[in-house]
């Protein structure tokens, strides 16, 4: 029980750091630490495979991708001259409190049924036999989705002008060769 509270407090601290820090690099670091502490929570709950996947994919790839994009974009040049709108903060805090209140009410009313441990077989064997039988079609659809995301990233980030210029330069090079 003590370790539950400890992990929860650490996760909450890093999540608050993510939202309320002024520098975006610090936010990315806080996201990395939040994902790592969540991996610890998964490990403590018994789903070891998901904990490993969380460290490898979410913390190792996605959080680092954010840092790479921050290196491409020069954030420092327009970071300090932004004024904060107070009405936006009030509206977002109100929304957060309403949603949190509703969720806490729902959890509070069902806490006895929710905190029972009914999971008998938590092994990777059971997980993957289900993944490759019942959930095989969603799994294949996920691979198609990943392929579409790769193609979309290449199409979005490539300059049309740059492509045309490269082609014309190639045409100029040909007679010399």
């Amino acid at each position: 029980m003590a370790i539950d509270i400890f992990l929860t407090i650490i996760t909450v601290i890093f999540a608050l750091m993510l939202v309320f820090s002024k520098r975006t690099v610090v936010s990315a670091f806080a996201l990395l630490m939040t994902l790592l502490t969540l991996a610890l929570i998964y490990f403590q709950l018994g789903s070891i495979f998901l904990s490993a996947v969380q460290v490898l994919i979410n913390a190792g790839a996605i959080a680092i991708l954010f840092v790479f994009v921050m290196m491409l974009i020069n954030l420092e040049q327009f970071q300090n001259n932004r004024e904060k709108s107070k009405i936006k903060l009030v509206i977002s805090t109100f929304t957060m409190l309403v949603v949190l209140g509703v969720l806490a009410l729902v959890i509070n009313n069902n806490i006895e049924t929710l905190s029972v441990n009914n999971l008998t077989d938590n092994s990777m064997n059971a997980l993957f036999s289900k993944l490759f039988s019942t959930y095989f079609l969603p799994f294949e659809m996920a691979t198609v989705l990943l392929l579409a995301a790769i193609v979309a990233c290449i199409v979005i980030t490539t300059h049309e002008k740059q492509l045309v210029e490269e082609e014309t330069e190639l045409h100029k090079m040909e007679p010399k060769l």
């Binding site: 539950d4 509270i5 929860t8 996760t11 909450v12 999540a15 608050l16 993510l18 939202v19 939040t34 929570i41 709950l45 936006k88 903060l89 509206i91 977002s92 805090t93 929304t95 957060m96 409190l97 949603v99 949190l100 969720l103 806490a104 959890i107 806490i111 929710l114 905190s115 441990n117």
Partner: peptide, 22 residues
């Protein structure tokens, strides 16, 4: 274990706050 339910709800709501006000 039950404290994690509140943690999940809190993380979701904090993300919502940040999405609106950042």
């Amino acid at each position: 274990m039950s404290i994690y339910y509140y943690l999940a709800a809190f993380l979701f709501c904090l993300g919502l706050l940040g999405t609106i006000f950042k």
